[in-house]
Design a protein around this nucleic acid. Sequence first.
DNA 1: CTAGGGTTAG
Length: 747
Amino acid sequence: MALSQSLLRAIPTCSFLSLSSSLPSTLQRLYPSPFKLFEFAASKFSCIGYYYSSLPLPLDHNFDNNNNLYYTFEPEAYYTSLLSKSTHKSFLNQIHAQLFTFGLQNNGYIITKFIHVGSNIGEIVYARKIFDEFSDPYVFLWNAIIRGYSSHNMFHEAIDMYNNMQEAYVSPDCFTFPHVLKACSGLSAVKFGQAVHAQAFRHGLESDVFVQNGLVTLYTKCRKIELARIIFDRLVERNIVSWTSMISGCAQNGQPIEALRIFCEMRKLNVEPDWIVLVSVLRAYSDAEDLEQGKCVHSLVMKMGLEYEPDLLIALTAMYSKCGQIMVAKLLFDLMEVQDVILWNVMISGFAKNGHASKAVELFQKMLMRNIRPDSVTVQSTILACAHVGSLDQARWMDNYVYNSKFRDDICVKTALIDMYAKCGSVELARKVFDQSIHRDVVLWSAMIVGYGLHGRAREAIDLFNMMKSAGVHPNDVTFIGLLTACNHSGLVKEGWELFHSMRLYGIEPRHQHYACVVDLLGRSGHLEKAYNFIQNMPIEPAVSIWGALLSACKIHRHVKLGEYAAEKLFSLDPLNTGHYVQLSNLYASTRMWEGVAKVRVLMKEKGLTKDLGYSMIEVNGKLQAFRMGDKSHPRSEEIYKELEILERKLMEAGFVPDAESALHDLDTEDKQVSLCNHSERLAIAYGLISTPPGTTLRITKNLRACVNCHSATKLITKLVNREIVVRDANRFHHFKDGFCSCGDFW
DNA sequence: CTAGGGTTAG
């Protein structure tokens, strides 16, 4: 008696395995057959037995006169408590076996609990087995299994089960729909989601707040923000989840201002925010780049005592980083005790986006040293950082890391690698990664096409596009951006024009960038009037990129009047962007309209704008070296300038005449002749020449667009010193070789 | 037994 009672008391805390060993070994020897053992234990101790396994039977059971087992305990309470302590499949198995002993295998309450626990501990396959063994499942069981699948992101399975449920003529209830809707949201399945919506309506559940919130999420995730809005507006009893769904929905759909308006509305109604809604609000402020309001949320967080909520701190870090306060973000990062991967991801992508790309890569390496496991997003962000840095050596290092990691078959990572190689100047290595990818989605194809576009290799881009279509992959808007850019960079006007007009055949509505490409395409080839008319007939309001494309075309073809018009639009739409002023000034200078140049200079001064300083970077022996114009800070400066002189002499001997026009564009230099051969690009080339073996390709990255003068000089240099030079400017790649450039002098 | 968030490739 004492033994059995102490065993039972031990159930909640003790593992069943140790219980098994506490069974007297004499019993095991005397009664080897499980049933005999059970019978013995039951009769001798009248309260406990063993059956097949080490799991003890509950206290209150006995045999009737016909030797049938019966129980007097509360099975539902008993097994609920037992199940809630189960963390392993083997325990569940033992409990399930015991249910048969008492004929409880069809107790819906207990089996529902089984399915919940099974899926909670990640044994969804086991949960499904239990479900399938239940003879006539009713709504609770269906809900449990659908929940199991949708909480494991197995959305197709969840929806399959929902369909099976209907085929079994079981009516869904208000608990069914949230799970099914989550599955629809996860798959962005609008059509099916709408059908579910209709069914919820038919079952009279459309006013249930859980169902409504599920619908709001469904429609925002499917980018049907207006539909979400209708549901939200009709909600009578909004709870904090309703508000959060709508606020984050707007933020996710590129409407941060609207998201924040709704948040204000919520506060006016005195709805107390919780930390989850604040995370969404912070995202909206980051997207709106509203640092001041973001800071207000920070103080609200402190006031509410939520500053110890790790995920909220991560959101704050992301907000500071997106608002350009990377150092504040770093401060929070350093102060934080939790070392969540997402926190590292925020910091790495923050560095990458804020012009500290090499710091991002350093952080990644630090993370590896600290044995914090990167996830796919970490790797993608780091690869993106490498793409910003532009170092081919670093790109190779990253590729090698991926190859030896579990991410080598991750399609997103592969896409990032393709983009990285293209941006680091090697479209060939990008293609190699592409060729080695077995699964190719539209994003991967597009990355390769965009890569070709960047390098002005329109033929390859179009060939790839055709291959993609034959592979049955449907193009999207980005595919066309790649194609159109490729045509631009190679001057393929006819092809570009046709591709643009084929977009709608693929069901793709052109966006600003596409229109900008066409304006660029027409403008570059000298069809300025046509470009202008094209803009006039656009179905959407022309944005900055479109006027920018027109202005640069006007600059190439020296069309002052139209250029001034475009510049006017640009100054009002984007008044603080220095680039537009420089472009207009360049246009005036190219037509020798000095009053115009002076006017622009005054305009810039009034607004307190200064021309961006140019710099170029070159990588030698894995080390990046940056040069500014006239830079003398390098330890080998003397040698560099000596090499520069030699180059200049060779250029002159070869009949190179510095382009006076280009010199005149330089607003800020007095001595134009010197400034030309002083350009950062030349310094980088000179340094590259003296520090690498003959024949090595030089790879240079610069922050501005290539200037006319350096461009023609570089062409000639490749011939004179017999080297290839690859230059990445702010816009595209130039591959210089044998006196020619891959851009065909279109840029 | 139910619903909401943050990092992310072209």
